[in-house]
Amino acid sequence: MTVITVNLGARTYPIHIRAGLLEEAGDHLAPLARGRTMAIVTDENLSGHLATLQASLTAHGVASEAIVLSPGEGSKSWATLERLCDHLLDIGIERGDHVVALGGGVIGDLVGFACAILKRGCRFVQIPTTLLAQVDSSVGGKTAINTRAGKNLIGAFHQPAMVLIDPQVLDTLPIRELRAGYAEVVKYGLIDDPAFFAWCETNGAALLAGDIALREYAIIHSVSAKARIVAADEHETTGTRALLNLGHTFGHALEAETGFSQTLIHGEGVAAGCALAFRYSAAHGLCSRDEADRVAAHWRAVQLPDGLAGAHVAADGATLVDHMRHDKKMAAGTLPFLLARGIGRTYLDTTVDLADVAAFLDAEPR
């Protein structure tokens, strides 16, 4: 068992990582149940994992009730949030209870936000079942739903009480979702760890093909990096945590243009966004074109998009920049961008001219 601690004072919590951990989840959750029925929120695609979790809870004397939602980004909505909150209240949720979020980023974000507002805050546990959620969204306490104006614009910082990560559950994950999660793994190398990016270049294909040891190493390395960054800047106020948004400003614009649909899922948007951020940096002499090409080449090698064409986006630069204007990071009319002085040398730039970004995007192949 690997245990990584997110050090946040009174909100400190452990992240447990081990293959086969889902079958042992009851051992970790039973002390949190307080003899009460534990609510599990999951989606329709995860019936097998739900059965494993409930069997483990039962073996430890814990009753459970499952709330099963529709899969997909569409569930991160006001309507689903309302239904979920009503359901949790109907079963008598108390402030001291722990709700279990069993699923990918959609379930984790939605359940976390519901728990942030229910009775002014109840507790929850993350059991992420996608690679993207395991290495990114389950750690750090960002919770949210989407609105017509954009993605994750209504939410709260609400840390989980515990995160249980089982790399073995990825065996049932569709390859497209696995690749999308891998984009967030590579991101940690691009931010400040060039040696890890080189490790990804060497091992990424085997990781995606099913090597459990490589998957576990990548998860541990990624979660350790995120835990360190979150502990240093929990609420994204100093700029340190903002580094985790590498690729997201471009990527969210691409996702918005494709309607936050299955045309382009989040990790694919992040991959394309990282490639665009490096090419934009190279165009302005911040990093070499060779490094930008190296990033794009790795995305192509693992069948992830490296720009607008791969993301199936034909919109002009002005349209994409208009999506960026709805970004939650916008401050006083300025949108911070994550740019790069090289692989592993990402920094926050608050002087980027959006008109220049639009011109850059107009010149990108479609």
Score class of each variant (00 low, 15 high):
residue 71 P to S: 13
residue 312 H to P: 00
residue 39 A to V: 07
residue 69 L to Y: 06
residue 156 A to V: 08
residue 113 F to S: 01
residue 366 R to K: 15
residue 77 S to F: 12
residue 220 I to Y: 01
residue 260 F to C: 05
residue 299 W to A: 06
residue 124 F to G: 01
residue 186 V to K: 04
residue 197 F to N: 06
residue 188 Y to I: 01
residue 194 P to F: 08
residue 159 Q to T: 02
residue 323 H to Y: 15
residue 20 G to L: 01
residue 296 A to L: 06
residue 202 T to G: 03
residue 172 T to H: 09
residue 59 A to H: 13
residue 298 H to N: 02
residue 328 K to Q: 08
residue 222 S to P: 02
residue 17 I to Y: 05
residue 61 G to I: 00
residue 292 A to Y: 10
residue 133 A to H: 02
residue 320 L to H: 02
residue 79 A to R: 15
residue 301 A to R: 12
residue 356 D to V: 03
residue 357 V to A: 14
residue 70 S to I: 13
residue 255 E to V: 09
residue 258 T to R: 15
residue 332 A to T: 01
residue 307 G to K: 02
residue 9 G to D: 08
residue 15 I to D: 07
residue 358 A to D: 13
residue 143 T to F: 11
residue 364 E to L: 09
residue 141 G to K: 07
residue 163 V to P: 01
residue 146 N to C: 05
residue 309 A to M: 10
residue 185 V to E: 06
residue 267 G to Y: 11
residue 167 P to S: 04
residue 31 P to V: 04
residue 219 I to Y: 08
residue 97 D to G: 13
residue 344 G to D: 00
residue 19 A to P: 06
residue 276 L to V: 03
residue 59 A to L: 08
residue 317 G to R: 11
residue 340 A to S: 15
residue 44 E to V: 03
residue 273 G to Y: 08
residue 173 L to C: 05
residue 146 N to G: 07
residue 220 I to Q: 11
residue 54 Q to Y: 11
residue 133 A to V: 01
residue 139 V to F: 04
residue 177 E to A: 12
residue 312 H to S: 11
residue 274 C to D: 11
residue 335 L to G: 12
residue 342 G to K: 07
residue 363 A to N: 11
residue 313 V to C: 15
residue 281 S to N: 07
residue 313 V to R: 12
residue 220 I to C: 10
residue 78 W to I: 04
residue 348 L to K: 15
residue 343 I to V: 13
residue 137 S to W: 05
residue 57 L to Y: 11
residue 256 A to V: 01
residue 194 P to N: 03
residue 132 L to E: 04
residue 287 C to Y: 11
residue 4 I to C: 02
residue 83 R to N: 14
residue 160 P to Y: 10
residue 286 L to N: 05
residue 63 A to I: 00
residue 85 C to H: 12
residue 232 A to M: 12
residue 344 G to E: 01
residue 42 T to R: 08
residue 235 H to T: 14
residue 188 Y to L: 00
residue 44 E to K: 12
residue 144 A to S: 15
residue 239 G to H: 04
residue 160 P to H: 10
residue 133 A to P: 01
residue 337 F to H: 02
residue 132 L to S: 03
residue 120 R to H: 08
residue 135 V to S: 11
residue 316 D to P: 14
residue 167 P to V: 04
residue 118 L to Q: 02
residue 63 A to C: 05
residue 292 A to H: 09
residue 283 A to R: 15
residue 361 L to T: 01
